[in-house]
Design a protein around this nucleic acid. Structure first.
Length: 497
RNA sequence: GGUCCUUUGGCCGAGUGGUUAGGCUCAGCUCUGCAAAAGCUGCUACAGCGGUUCGAAUCCGCUAGGGACCUCCA
């Protein structure tokens, strides 16, 4: 049970992970379209794949993690009005397209930092890889799988499907797609409705435009990922990730394009995270039910009962398996908030405990249980990244840790080796793999000094049974968001939140 | 309409052919000057109906609800 198993969307089953090059992993994750502010739904893939990235590194792999920024416009509704999201928004906000894209890229980076996600190894932009995309399209045309019409280039899906396994990834049958009776304007250029654009001719009012062999235009959406993944990870790479909603047509198209271009299926393991829902419904712009990340952090949204710390969101997401839908609610988020606080405080206590070998002999049952719970961290992660189960085990350890701290259970109830393993693995998992960090913000020295002073005064008051003063200190601090707690050993601790 | 997925206790959510998930909430107790925190205890669920099985919440079928994709989407 020490092999990593990953659920591969392509085969629809869990497979043992074997990288193409031993010791190295190439991972591509579909990034964000920076035509607007990121919302809660966007947080899921980036946190999910951040943990996968961290875990792969923890296993000793050298990982190249590529996550793109989609800053070139693609169709809002293919065929309808060649409408470019970014151009449109730029006009709306009276910004230069690149200005707009930079603004939202910065906001995205800011949010990712709040979530404590590690930066990808390479973060390529679509606009920075127009040349690569054009080259790729040329190759596809040369191979006979794309055709040009009026300055636009389309991929010939029907031809591809005749000799390739089109639709396998998304479970789609071409015949069904061809039968679509849906009425869409501007489809007449295509030979078949299932064909998708590789390059699109730009109308005069279209602001984002580039010169190409087929005239002035802009790239289709799917080609950017194929081009950038190929450039930085090679014709074949290990992992490609993204949201489930990208399975079709985006990822299916990627497979087709890359297969023609590079003569082999591009990806070994496809990983897809499920959606975050709100009232049982996918969160998305078209549903008009999004909560932006900035709103989540400030609480400034009619649906939010309060502000939620980025770490609470991260914890919330990790508490469920990445392939399940996750339903948003204030209750669920507040439960996560309390849970995280409890876990983190226990974790900090554990770090502060030093092992003292003493009289009481080792409690075999406790020792065994402790070892089992810790050993299962690895087991659960190896089983398709079971972060939820890892956290559940940690919570089972929390009462034990708290009891050690309060001396209800002597530290020597477990062996020194086990205690050290517990300390080490908690650190590795809580911080390095799950990427959690302290929710409390007040870590500056001046505050610490002031708090020490207040604690001293309060202790003196308590010794004199001057409870009016001691309560005043505690209550007023609480109003300021600082929680004072009397410890069992007579000391006092505090947390700011 | 087509394809696929899902339905777990007050809420959120793991998981699985036979054993306590876990978190939050709630109630009681211990500790405490009082709190808070912490510890202990209690609340025991798997949509419905059939079937397979010694045994199913877990496998199969049907029914009902919910959802995703089929168009931009994390």
């Amino acid at each position: 049970m020490d092999e990593l198993k990953i659920y591969n969307s392509y085969s629809r089953q869990k497979e043992v992970f074997k990288p193409i090059t031993p010791g190295h992993v190439g991972m591509y994750v579909c990034g964000t379209t920076v035509s607007g502010e990121s919302h809660l739904g966007h947080a899921r893939p980036y946190i999910t794949f951040d943990v996968i990235y961290r875990y792969l590194m923890h296993l000793g792999y050298k990982v190249r993690y590529v996550r793109n920024i989609t800053d070139a416009g693609h169709f809002e509704e293919e065929g309808r009005e060649a409408e470019d999201k970014i151009s449109k928004k730029a006009v709306l906000e009276k910004l230069e397209p690149m200005e707009l894209v930079t603004k939202y890229t910065n906001l995205f980076h800011w949010a990712m930092e709040q979530f404590n996600t590690l930066k990808p190894s390479i973060e390529p932009t679509a606009t920075g890889h127009i040349v690569e995309q054009i080259e790729m399209i040329k190759k596809i045309i040369d191979a006979g799988y794309a055709y040009e019409v009026n300055g636009s280039v389309y991929f010939d899906v029907k031809k591809y499907a005749a000799s390739h396994d089109y639709g396998k990834l998304s479970g789609r049958v071409l015949e069904d797609l061809l039968e679509t009776t849906r009425e869409l304007d501007g489809q007449e250029e295509k030979r078949n409705t299932a064909d998708f654009a590789l390059w699109k001719n730009a109308s005069p009012e279209h602001i984002m435009r580039w010169q190409s062999p087929w005239g002035v235009g802009f790239p289709g959406w799917h080609i950017e990922c194929s081009a950038m993944a190929t450039k930085y990870l090679g014709a074949q790479f290990d992992i490609h990730g993204g949201g489930m909603d990208l399975l079709f047509p985006h990822h299916e198209s990627e497979v087709a394009q890359s297969t023609i271009c590079n003569h082999s299926a591009p990806v070994r393991y496809w990983i897809h995270n499920n959606m975050i829902t709100i009232d049982g419904r996918k969160m998305g712009k078209s549903y008009n039910n999004v909560i932006k990340l900035s709103e989540l952090f400030t609480g400034d949204h009619p649906m939010l009962a309060k502000a939620y710390h980025p770490m609470v969101i991260r914890f919330f997401i990790l508490q469920t398996h990445y392939r399940s839908t996750l339903d948003f609610s204030n209750d669920a988020l507040q439960a996560a908030e309390k849970g995280l606080k409890r876990l983190w405080e226990a974790y900090e206590k554990l770090r502060a405990i030093s092992y003292k070998p003493q009289d009481g002999s080792v409690d075999k049952e406790l020792e065994a249980n402790c070892l089992k719970l810790v050993a299962e961290f690895d087991e659960f992660m190896n089983d398709d990244f079971g972060t939820a189960r890892v956290l559940a085990n940690m919570f089972e350890l929390v009462p034990f840790i708290n009891s050690m701290k309060d001396n209800i259970i002597p530290v020597s109830a477990i062996s020194k080796e086990t205690f050290e393993l517990l300390q080490k693995q908690m650190k590795v998992y809580v911080e390095d793999i799950l990427g959690l960090k302290s929710v409390t913000e007040a870590n500056n020295e001046k505050l610490k000094g002031v708090m020490n002073l207040l604690i001293e005064i309060r202790k003196e008051a308590k010794d004199k049974k001057d409870f009016a003063t001691s309560d005043k200190i505690r209550n007023q601090l609480q109003q300021m968001g600082i929680l004072l707690k009397d410890e069992k050993d007579g000391g006092m601790s505090w947390t700011a939140f």
